[in-house]
Design a protein around this nucleic acid. Structure first.
Lengths: 177, 177
DNA sequence: AATTTATGTCAGCCATATTGACGTATCTTG
DNA sequence: CAAGATACGTCAATATGGCTGACATAAATT
């Protein structure tokens, strides 16, 4: 038996040392964990059929959505090193999901573009995730859906936004700059 | 330059083959990605100081929150194999963050409990995440916060719920059982 | 011409996940 | 009770996707 959160009862003893012992958002913390677990799980199954993993999905997704993304931009978005990106990106290039074009202004840059093949894969995966989102929003009206977006936007760090985030947030580049 | 989603313009060509070509929820898909990236990022830094990774966090979190959780329950929640859990759990046991107790009814079971040391770590990490959530909910009223919870709950798979999910959802165990 | 920048790559390491096999204690069932 | 199923632990091998550090090249900048 066991396994029942003491949501009202005894909070963890020594509490948050140095962080203060105010009310912790256990509910939302755990809902986020499970929601994201199942959200990414949708794509995982499909990806297996292509011999890809989550890393490939993230790369092809953002390249499809933001055509002409530079390698450096992608590194900012994914928060990984170029060595890590390298392996995954090379596979996607070799297998024809992505193509590179030399930058016009700066010929050092390799601008990334998804091929139709890549776009198709991304759309398929986004379709699965969209299904889940639509189901989740089924009982929520337009105003509620906007509240959900507002919450998610506010969960994101806005200091030092990468190129994709600037696009998402309409580049209100804060103070710096 | 580049990097601007063609949110209105040309959707990916070959669209979702087999999944239908209706509107895809690009915005929420990406907001979820960034929100979760930064959400778990909070804990990452702290964990480094303890020599732990995300895997340790997930384990100690759920053990703290659901005292007496069985090993099998934890495997369901985390969706990993017992071999993977094994190493991480052993570390947490060895270093005194978790203790095991033999089940009363079933002596094969090893019920897991967080020590005060473990609870303190979990509370500290939950504190960081709570700060972010509170900031995100700052401009949202009580009804809006409930909408957010409703959305997150609805994003979670309800078929074959694990023990923790049953607790979270008030065990409305669907048909099976 | 010297330096910096954007990218690629080699080499190795680490964390975390996997599958498969096997062992042991304990509960359940015929 | 004997047989089988279950809960858990563990050994071994492997894969993925991160990491650091070092180094190379081409192109832009100064």
């Amino acid at each position: 038996m066991a396994a029942k959160p003491d949501s009202q009862g005894s909070e963890p003893a020594s509490a948050a040392s140095g962080t203060g012992a105010r009310e912790l958002r256990w509910d939302i913390i755990e809902l986020l964990f499970f929601a994201y677990r199942d959200f990414v799980g949708d794509a995982d199954q499909e990806l297996e059929a292509f011999g890809f993993g989550r890393a490939h999905h993230r790369v092809i997704h953002f390249v499809t959505r933001y055509p002409g993304l530079k390698v450096a931009d992608l590194l900012d978005v994914l928060r990984i090193t170029k060595q890590s990106l390298g392996r995954v990106l090379k596979q996607l290039l070799d297998e024809g999901y992505i193509v590179q074009k030399t930058g016009n202004n700066d010929r050092r840059q390799r601008l990334l573009y998804a091929t139709p093949k890549g776009e198709a894969l991304v759309a398929k995966l986004a379709g699965l995730q969209t299904d889940r989102i639509n189901r989740a929003l089924a009982g929520i009206d337009a105003a509620g859906a906007e509240t959900v977006r507002q919450f998610l936007r506010a969960m994101i760090d806005r200091d030092d936004p990468d190129k994709v985030l600037e696009a998402i947030f309409g580049s209100s580049k804060k103070a710096r700059e």
